[in-house]
């Protein structure tokens, strides 16, 4: 694990897998739903992230199914993946808290100046 902030697609893929194991297309759909359609992962980006996360041991294959003659592989979060997602979530929350506090302070100052 590094101190480098996680990239958004990685964070979203881990978040999609935090609830339950999902196959590739289900991850794309869940990420689109989570972000209100703002992020729609494409296959190349998704599988680059899945391959890297598997190599880093943050996700693993849960099971494989064949649906309409097509391979469907389900992925799930590992313990290391859960830890990594928790760390990143805490980091984002801490940053959001600071940003929120400063915005409140700014609004109070500006409000004070205008009255």
């Amino acid at each position: 694990m590094t101190d480098t902030p996680m990239r958004e697609p990685t964070f979203l893929v881990l978040t999609a897998l935090a609830e339950e194991s999902r196959h590739g297309y289900a991850v794309i759909e869940d990420v689109a739903a989570m972000t209100g359609g703002r992020v729609r992962l494409r296959a190349g980006t998704l599988y680059a992230a899945l391959d890297r996360l598997r190599t880093e041991g943050l996700i693993e294959v849960d099971r494989e199914e064949v649906v309409q003659s097509r391979l469907r592989r389900y992925y799930r979060l590992t313990g290391a993946g859960e830890q990594s997602l928790a760390t990143e979530t805490a980091r984002l929350r801490a940053q959001a808290t600071i940003a929120e506090r400063r915005l409140q302070g700014r609004r109070a100052r500006l409000g004070g100046a205008t009255t």
Binding site: H23, Y25, I28, Y47, D51, R70, R73
Partner: peptide, 12 residues
């Protein structure tokens, strides 16, 4: 990953 990716691409 090819078979899996083809499945995802065709599904989308």
């Amino acid at each position: 990953y090819e078979e899996e990716m083809i499945g995802v691409l065709l599904s989308g």
